Measured scan of single mutants.
Amino acid sequence: LKGVVVAGGVLAGAVAVASFFLRNKRR
């Protein structure tokens, strides 16, 4: 169960970083 929580956190972080980079590329 702990691994699932960690994986979810990593996935959420990756999505946040990806969206951040996409926003920067638009400018």
Rank of each mutant, 00 (worst) to 15 (best):
A12L: 04
V10R: 12
F20K: 01
V17Q: 00
V10C: 12
G3R: 11
A7D: 01
A16L: 14
G9A: 09
A7T: 03
V17P: 00
K2C: 15
A7K: 11
K25W: 04
R27D: 15
F21T: 06
K2S: 10
F20R: 09
N24D: 00
A7R: 07
G9H: 03
G9C: 04
G9Y: 00
G3D: 07
V5D: 10
A16D: 02
G3N: 03
V15E: 10
V10F: 01
A7Y: 00
V4I: 15
R23S: 07
V17S: 12
K2R: 08
F20W: 14
L1H: 04
A16R: 09
G8T: 01
V6Q: 03
R26M: 01
V4N: 03
V10K: 06
V17H: 09
A14E: 05
V4S: 05
S19F: 15
A7I: 12
V17N: 00
V4M: 15
L1Y: 14
V17L: 00
K25L: 08
N24A: 08
A18D: 03
G8Y: 00
L1E: 12
G8S: 09
G9Q: 01
R26H: 05
K25E: 11
R26W: 07
V5E: 13
A14C: 02
V15M: 14
L1N: 10
F20E: 03
L22H: 02
R23H: 02
A12R: 10
G9T: 05
V6K: 02
V15W: 03
K2F: 08
G9W: 15
V6W: 04
G13L: 04
V17W: 14
A16T: 15
V6D: 13
R23W: 09
A18C: 05
S19V: 02
A16V: 11
K25A: 06
G8L: 08
V4P: 08
R23Q: 05
K2A: 11
V17I: 09
L1M: 02
R26L: 01
S19C: 04
L1D: 10
A16P: 01
R27F: 07
R27E: 05
G8I: 01
L22R: 12
G9R: 06
K2T: 14
V15K: 08
V10D: 13
A18G: 10
G3T: 10
V15I: 12
G13I: 15
A16M: 15
K25G: 09
V15G: 06
V5I: 01
V5A: 06
G9E: 08
A14F: 14
R26A: 11
R26G: 10
G3H: 09
A18Y: 09
A14G: 06
G13R: 13
K25R: 12
S19R: 13
A12C: 13
K2D: 03
K2E: 08
V15H: 04
L11P: 09
V17E: 01
K25V: 11
K25S: 04
S19T: 00
A7E: 13
V4H: 15
A12S: 10
V10S: 10
A16Y: 14
L11D: 05
A7P: 04
L22K: 05
A7L: 10
F21R: 01
K25Q: 11
F20A: 01
G9K: 13
L1Q: 06
K2N: 02
V6G: 03
R23K: 00
A14R: 10
A18Q: 13
S19N: 08
A7F: 12
A12G: 07
V6I: 09
R23C: 06
A14N: 11
V10A: 06
V15S: 09
A14W: 08
L11F: 14
A16K: 04
G9V: 05
V4W: 04
G3E: 09
V17G: 01
K25D: 15
G13F: 06
F20V: 03
G8W: 05
G13K: 07
A18F: 01
V4D: 08
A14P: 07
G13C: 12
S19P: 08
F21Y: 14
A14T: 11
V6H: 15
A16W: 14
R23E: 07
V17K: 12
F20M: 06
R23L: 06
V5G: 13
G9L: 07
V17F: 10
G3W: 01
A14M: 14
L22M: 14
V6F: 00
R27C: 00
G3V: 06
V4G: 08
G3S: 10
R27L: 12
F20C: 02
F21E: 00
L1V: 09
G13V: 05
K2V: 03
L22W: 15
A18T: 04
F20H: 14
S19Y: 02
V10N: 00
V5L: 08
L1C: 06
L22C: 00
V4K: 01
A18K: 13
V4T: 02
F20Y: 02
S19W: 08
A18W: 12
K2H: 03
K2P: 11
R23T: 05
N24W: 14
A12W: 07
G3L: 07
N24Q: 05
G8E: 07
V10M: 06
A12T: 02
L11M: 05
A16F: 14
K2W: 05
A14K: 06
V15F: 00
R27S: 03
S19G: 05
R27T: 11
V5R: 03
S19A: 04
A14D: 03
A7V: 05
A18R: 13
K25F: 04
A12I: 14
V15T: 02
A16G: 10
A14S: 07
L11C: 03
G9P: 07
V6A: 02
A7H: 00
K25C: 14
G13E: 08
V5T: 11
V4E: 05
F21W: 13
F20G: 03
K2I: 05
V15D: 05
V6S: 07
